[in-house]
Design a protein around this nucleic acid. Sequence first.
DNA 1: CTCCTAAATGATAATGGTTTTCATTTTCAA
DNA 2: TTGAAAATGAAAACCATTATCATTTAGGAG
Lengths: 154, 154
Amino acid sequence: MGRGPRWCHARFRNFGYKMTQPREIILDVLSRTKKHLSAEDIYIEVYKIYPGIGLTTIYRTLDILTNMEMVSRYDFGDGRSRYELISDKKSEHHHHLICLNCGKIIDYNDYIDEETKLFDKLEKVLSEKHNFKINYHHVGFYGLCDKCKSTTSS
Amino acid sequence: MGRGPRWCHARFRNFGYKMTQPREIILDVLSRTKKHLSAEDIYIEVYKIYPGIGLTTIYRTLDILTNMEMVSRYDFGDGRSRYELISDKKSEHHHHLICLNCGKIIDYNDYIDEETKLFDKLEKVLSEKHNFKINYHHVGFYGLCDKCKSTTSS
DNA sequence: CTCCTAAATGATAATGGTTTTCATTTTCAA
DNA sequence: TTGAAAATGAAAACCATTATCATTTAGGAG
């Protein structure tokens, strides 16, 4: 997705939105990380550059970006949503390992071709069978990471 | 999982929990539905049979059942968790289609064998590669259901 | 069966992420 | 440059979930 500010500006326009400084900075923060940031994480980063920012604007911008399909929203079950810029590169498609103890998230794309093949087939079959328009899918493996496996008593 | 009250009672004991009437009723409600109930949904159902019930008990029991791996908790992104009794029958293993507009959830198990095969392999590879103990995985397809597809303007 | 203690319960209050409200500021096309 | 629509941010509201705590209950010991 990272085609620079020019491209983003046009895209915002196309969706009937205006490009503003807060939005630019939020996009910038998202593009500079590989982590899965929460709204507050993003707020803290944006605040360093633009202290006038309000948490509300973060939420509103993330909603817009999600609707524009520039950002994925994930619910990993820790009570807050996490956001990730969608890459335009197919090679960066990935899914997640989520640690139930510490919340650590690992991206993986092993066997992604096999997965893609199966999921393409599934999407086709399911969308026809249930007359369902599928926009995207989420896959997550939940468990205990390296550290928590040895630390946790459970 | 539905091996009757006798079996559940023993299982509770084994985990150091006591079997109580609220817990029995909650299990009963869960076993009588194929839907993906929220805590409040469950509260409403239990209330019909046992009006003394408190919402706190629903949450606590669901936590216990989740830890005992008798129940799956899902976050489909609508701001509330949903719960589903885990079946002991392999044939009832399934994943979900979630409507982003109305929240309708459809279970599917097409190509579940192929999926299982791929996921078993993935779990093996990923758990070794990242030294990660995988407990379970979630797969969800998000989009618009039959009705919402024709209704929604977006 | 009766007691006793730890566990469970439920009413209430608190928490915390997210959304709404609304007066003010900003964008951008004319 | 200007004006109308869109965006912003501070504050309050919302609402699912969790913590607190006094009371009740389950179920093993005797």
